[in-house]
């Protein structure tokens, strides 16, 4: 019998469960390595070479190089791990979160100042907005 995953119909949301964690193990552990200043320097000096030291899939490496966080998450990345890439790039958590929404940095910041993204229409996929 398969596990119940009631969170599959939450729009625009990927829950980092055991299946995603298994898929993203090496991607996330690569991110973890960026907690050390010397690794951040080495990564920045030659990103592709640094990534090639990790047994990640080619798709995962390309997603990191493109800083496509939605793609990274689809391939098993977790936002708290991926945040280390943003930190290495000198980005704030707000810049990282905003980059996944299709909004500009200003648009996202203004949305937050105005009270954030509304829950109305955002509970279920396919829900009428």
């Amino acid at each position: 019998m398969s596990l119940d995953k009631p969170y599959k119909d939450v729009p625009g949301t990927t829950i980092f469960d055991a299946d995603m964690s298994r898929q993203g193990y090496h991607l996330n552990q690569f991110c973890m390595s960026l907690m050390k200043a010397e690794n951040r320097a080495r990564f920045k000096a030659d990103e592709r070479a640094y990534l090639d030291e990790w047994p990640m899939t080619e798709d995962q490496k390309l997603a990191v190089l493109a800083r496509d966080l939605n793609r990274c998450i689809a391939l098993g990345g977790n936002i708290y791990f991926l945040a280390k890439i943003g930190a290495t790039d000198g980005k704030s958590f707000q810049q990282m979160a905003g980059s996944m929404t299709g909004m500009s940095e200003d648009e996202y910041r203004n949305m937050m100042v105005s009270g954030g993204r509304t829950i109305e229409g955002n509970r279920y996929t396919g829900e009428k907005k």
């Binding site: 996944m100 929404t101 009270g115 954030g116 993204r117």
Partner: peptide
């Protein structure tokens, strides 16, 4: 409290909740 940091739904806030 309410917050979402990932995906297209990032920025969600639910004051009523």
């Amino acid at each position: 409290m309410s917050h979402q940091l990932q995906g297209p739904r990032a920025g969600l806030i639910n004051k009523e909740f």
